[in-house]
Amino acid sequence: MDRKVIITAESTCDLTADILQGLNIPIIPMYVNIEEVSYKDGVNIQPDVIFTTFETKGILAKTSAIPVYDYKLFFEKYIEQNYEIVHISLGSKFSSTYQGAVNASNMLEHVRVVDSGNLSTGYGHTVMLAAEMARDGKSPEEILTELSHFIPKVKASFVIDTLNYLHKGGRCSSVAALGANLLQLKPCIEVVDGEMKVAKKYRGNLERTLKSYIDDKLADLNKIHPKRIFITHSSCSDEMVEMVKNAIEQKEYFQEIIVTKAGCTISCHCGPNTLGILYYDL
């Protein structure tokens, strides 16, 4: 009997429950550690807990990779249901999760692992495309070929409101964090060749910064695919998210604008009031 194709992913893809259910995408959660306690991202911990713990105790949650054994159990569940698995992983330069998934797949048959080269809904774009192809009856080989062309086209970036979380996590100096806060600098972090880089620093309040950021990123719509764009954020106000959505709608270009909340991985590193627009080029 022919095996059906199923796309699996990690919680870091930040897709909504409706999308995951509608496209039949099983998720394996990342681990989040606070002091001596380990949690599963999106299962028994949400970003609000991370923010509250940091603000009240000064303790920053840390993410950890999924063990190979967890992957093996996860994959076996769907192999037993007669599925051919294409697992798409968080970018390999961000975490060892990709290698863990590969190691587990080497113990099994019927599993292929893809490096998304990205994070959050930049990674989610790839997961959605693969799941749509699986739904439409494409083979694993056809999906892998398409993804090899698609992954380099994905554009992921975020504006960060405060550098406190990056500083606490050892990703920027105390001088840089203090200076940025005093000068109201909002860095734009961009994924370039599978790694996070500072693309630009905006100056001013978050609302003004986000308007400039949207105009900069969407300045040349002729290069961008109109199918869908994500607005992904960590605990931004409804008003702020609506302002960003309205600014994109005024471009009258995208067929679908999807708002999602960032999970624990982005939240641990970037903190609250982080927002990004994520799309892909033609």
Score class of each variant (00 low, 15 high):
I143W: 00
E146T: 13
S148K: 15
S148G: 07
F150V: 05
I151F: 01
P152W: 04
K153A: 05
K153Q: 13
V154L: 00
A156D: 09
A156Y: 01
A156L: 08
S157Q: 11
F158R: 04
I160Q: 00
I160W: 04
D161K: 10
T162C: 09
T162L: 03
T162N: 04
L163P: 11
Y165A: 01
Y165L: 00
H167G: 01
G169V: 01
G169K: 06
G170Q: 12
R171C: 02
R171I: 05
C172H: 06
S173L: 06
S174R: 12
S174G: 08
A177F: 08
G179N: 11
A180W: 00
N181A: 14
L182Q: 05
L183G: 03
L183Q: 02
L183N: 08
Q184M: 11
Q184S: 13
Q184L: 07
L185A: 11
L185S: 06
K186A: 09
K186E: 10
K186L: 11
P187F: 08
P187Q: 12
P187H: 14
V191R: 00
V191F: 06
V191C: 04
V192A: 10
V192P: 03
E195L: 06
E195N: 07
K197F: 11
V198W: 03
A199C: 07
A199S: 15
A199W: 12
K200R: 15
